[in-house]
Nucleic acid binder design. Structure first.
Lengths: 383, 383
DNA sequence: GGAGTTGTTGCAATCGATTGCATAAAGGGT
DNA sequence: ACCCTTTATGCAATCGATTGCAACAACTCC
């Protein structure tokens, strides 16, 4: 090995000879490894140095030849030779080492409130799709029910050297927002936004969505509407609730005819409990608008429990159009939000923020669409 | 800064004085940064060196003090001082740098056939839960419809330095299996297995699951059963099909009374098409067992299209018990597999493989459970 | 033909943490 | 007092790729 190390380098004319030598060396190397047994990794991946030795050039030249941004600095024929050698050896750059030097890891952290929530995968899918196209990989972290872990998880991701963060978890006045700002790491929020709107975000027009739902129901003849609001510390929960009230008022409904119950979480069971509170009132609403499809599922449960029928006794409108709600009985009328598109846009925004850290904070608001199915109909008994 | 660098180190007695000096230095450093404007990263994270300087010890001592495995090598009081300084500075080790040196990244790659498939999130959730507890983070990659990308994606993950792989994508005779074996990287399969069973895997007993479904239907009086098989290059597709045939034969059904149609993919629409082929036969089956809930959804579609009723005209059994199939109309009778548990076990197996690369290849087979709901009933018209 | 360009390549420092080895001090035994 | 452990710490190399700078060649221009 030492004999080769001392060989002259950087001289084209000798390369044929060097290749010959190197082939011998490689064989020897293999034999040594096999003979000795386990010299650490048996199938240790080739490094930039191996490629350099095989070509008789300096590692730095290999680095430049293989980097699109720097390859113009190396002679075309040498670059070609290097690329060929790299391919022959099956060389793949060690991203960790490059990341240490350049300070960029090519990793993006994604914080999710709950991976198992059917609303999340489409967003994630959009995020990864766009990021993967730019060579980034994503680390998805499930925060779980305890939001206090969020801060620690962000720190862990930063320690891992992520180049940016996608947060699908933030609550209003979330301390993690300030934390990210202080760490000056590119961040983009998705589906939710912070109260101060200090960070770029991709959201849907929650208030417009509620207007679609309310107008649809009022158009059907409903005059007494219920709303099951989501957690009020989450932007969607607060905004959809506000949107419901505003839309109802605009449609001429009095405050007594707009009933609101708040769910403590976006879960089916919380939806059920809130729906029962609504149904069990003295004068129940003829239609209920849920802040979320999962809550709507709970409304179905409650309706069944009370022996009522949807939509004849109670109409139901969901929100998000999560997969397969068209298969429910009755198929759920819901406000569709473009989740995949939301993920794509969030990734795009994050890439922009990474490219130009000082750029302005953009905010993308997507327009929701009402999907009318079987869970809404004319009220049978006008109260 | 040079003046401090030259200060004597490794001497407890001088530490108070050094701390004093260092505080001064820190202030100066801050002032310099603020004054100069943007000295690269404004909020650059403190390194092990910063902690060392602050304590007047060598960086290696800090490294040892902060590493649980090595901390026994450093004096308790010094270790305490170091931990305090690290906490004060908000020091977090740079995982990238450590990974370069140690060769371990703390990253696990997960290959998924389709993140948006409702069956996958629970598995992923189980995997990340167990891995996160051991300090690992997961990179999830969506392979998408084109399986030829799998090999390249694996290589990319390996280039990223992942310590192991969880594959939820492999097909029978998948070349990627040999590729992983050759790369000698810890791998575990989940939900699917390779034909040669050369890799550790966590699967459910597919044949037992089909027996549960078939026996249930035969018990209800069905004598002519249909099966919608999944893709035959996927272990679940082939094994469930074989399980269906075996169970039907064991129950005394003739070959003419066991009808099989194969879906080209685990999708709702493929299920619909296959179900139509089954229903449109001269003598259709009175019950259909799907290899997967998504296919069962398609059966519902087909039944509706032909103006039939489930379960009175056709009973349907699904497989997987994916979220919210209890909300369908009728609620889906299905074979439940412990997806989250599957993820947990896969992660556990992978951790074992990383800890002891030479250990034997384990194989975990989970037992499925039949969940009887409303989509199965006695056949109305015995054919 | 000498000075100035342009184009290629090598050299060596660097990123931040880890770890085998050397060293120094403290403690123990006779 | 001397040698021999034990314990605690520092030193320097290392992981693999990147990049500013220097060096050298070939070429151009006057």
């Amino acid at each position: 090995m030492a004999s080769v190390k001392g060989a002259p380098a950087g001289c084209y004319a000798r390369c044929r000879a060097l290749e010959h030598w190197d082939d011998l060396r490689v064989v020897q190397k293999n034999r040594t490894v096999t003979g000795k047994g386990a010299r650490s990794a048996p199938a240790s991946r080739p490094t930039i140095k191996d490629v350099a030795e095989r070509c008789g050039v300096h590692p730095s030249t290999v680095s430049r030849a293989l980097s699109p941004a720097m390859s113009h600095l190396v002679a075309p024929d040498v670059a070609k030779r290097i690329r060929a050698a790299a391919a022959a050896l099956g060389y793949q750059p060690n991203v960790t080492a490059a990341g240490l030097r350049t300070g960029r890891s090519g990793l993006i952290g994604v914080l999710a409130p709950d991976i198992a929530d059917p609303g999340f995968p489409p967003i994630l899918s959009g995020v990864t799709e766009t990021l993967a196209a730019e060579g980034y990989a994503t680390i998805v972290v499930d925060v779980g029910p305890d939001p206090s872990r969020e801060r620690e998880l962000v720190d862990r991701l930063i320690a891992r050297g992520v180049d940016g963060l996608v947060l699908a978890t933030v609550v209003l006045n979330d301390p993690v927002v300030g934390h990210c700002l202080a760490a000056s790491i590119p961040v983009v929020l998705v589906n939710r936004s912070d109260s101060a709107r200090k960070l770029p975000a991709v959201v849907t027009d929650d208030e417009a969505g509620m207007r679609l739902a309310v107008d649809h129901l009022v158009g059907l003849g409903h005059r007494r509407l219920g709303h099951i609001a989501g957690p009020q510390d989450v932007s969607t929960g607060a905004l959809r609730r506000a949107g419901f009230k505003a839309a109802a008022a605009r449609a001429g409904l009095s405050a007594q005819n707009t009933l609101i119950e708040t769910a403590r979480a976006y879960t089916r069971d919380e939806g059920r409990l809130a729906a029962l509170r609504l149904i069990d009132r003295e004068r129940p609403p003829t239609a209920i608008v849920a802040a979320n499809d999962l809550l709507a599922l709970g409304i179905y449960d409650a309706i069944g429990e009370r022996g009522l029928k949807c939509p004849s006794d109670v109409s139901v409108v969901g929100h998000n159009d999560m997969p397969y709600v068209d298969m429910l009985s009755p198929p759920l009328t819901t406000v569709r939000i473009a989740q995949r598109e939301m993920g794509n846009q969030a990734a795009r925004l994050l890439l922009d923020a990474i490219a130009a850290p000082a750029a302005r904070r953009e905010r993308v608001v997507l327009e929701p669409v009402l999907i009318v199915r079987g869970s809404t109909g004319k009220p049978e008994r006008i109260p």
